[in-house]
């Protein structure tokens, strides 16, 4: 499936500390490298353990030099959390970029104390859906799928599976699964593999909301 000539494919992975954004981006990067593509990854994870936003830019292809995706040039934004997906929407290609989003909204503590106001879950979903045509948005209940896969910490891999099924990335699903397995802990191989296919099937069967 890896095409011989890929100029530029850009993917943003975004979530909050502890959701496994960096592991997912490593897996994507490794798979792309295996497929013979040039790769650049930018990570911002300064305060990952301290409830901050975490994101990763994964760039693949021969025309890629720097690790950061310019605004309006992302083929996909993969949001592990809804507000983080919204935060990075500006990077999406305005005409045909896609959004794959986990339907969880994680409020920061400052929301409960009234120092920052976050929108409600339904309101935010409505905003996202109003800005993108239905065929460009995939909403996934990744938390439930991860639990069904046997480990609630596999949300990141569910999301990679879902991304894979959209067909936006120049890497086959089997290659991506192999890269995931090379990057996650040895004792968690099976649940991660299950998690990947659960995310994959959810999108390919068109079961997203």
């Amino acid at each position: 499936m890896a095409s011989a000539k890929v100029d530029e494919v850009n993917v943003v992975l975004a979530g909050v500390g502890g959701q496994g954004v960096v592991v997912a981006s490593d897996a994507l990067g490794l798979a792309a490298m295996k497929a013979g593509l040039n790769v650049r990854i930018a990570n911002v994870h300064g305060l990952a353990q301290r409830e901050g936003s975490v994101y990763s830019h994964v760039r693949m292809g021969s025309a890629v030099y720097s690790p950061k995706i310019p605004p309006g040039r992302a083929n996909a934004v993969v949001g592990f959390e809804m507000s983080e997906a919204a935060r990075h929407l500006r990077l999406l290609k305005p005409d045909d970029g896609i959004l794959v989003v986990n339907n969880a909204l994680m409020y920061p503590l400052a929301h409960f104390t009234g120092h920052v106001r976050y929108p409600g879950r339904e309101d935010l979903l409505e905003v996202l859906e109003s800005r993108l045509e239905p065929e460009r948005i995939y909403v996934i209940d990744a938390a439930s799928l991860a639990i069904r896969a046997g480990n609630p910490r596999t949300v990141n891999v569910v999301m990679l599976g879902a991304l894979s099924a959209t067909g936006v990335i120049p890497i086959g699903p089997d290659e991506l699964v192999e890269a995931v397995k090379a990057r996650v802990p040895k004792f968690a191989l099976e649940e991660n593999e299950r998690a990947f296919w659960m995310g994959y099937n959810e999108v390919s069967r068109g079961e997203t909301t």
């Binding site: 909050v16 305060l47 353990q49 301290r50 409830e51 901050g52 936003s53 310019p70 605004p71 309006g72 040039r73 507000s83 983080e84 919204a86 935060r87 990075h88 929407l89 500006r90 999406l92 305005p94 920061p108 503590l109 400052a110 120092h115 920052v116 106001r117 976050y118 929108p119 905003v127 996202l128 800005r131």
Partner: peptide
């Protein structure tokens, strides 16, 4: 890349996640 779109508005509407001690 410099053409701004309505997607920008959505992004700028999300408040910063203030870091907290764990």
């Amino acid at each position: 890349a410099l053409t701004l779109t309505t997607l920008d508005e959505v992004s700028s509407s999300v408040g910063r996640r203030i870091p907290q001690m764990c």
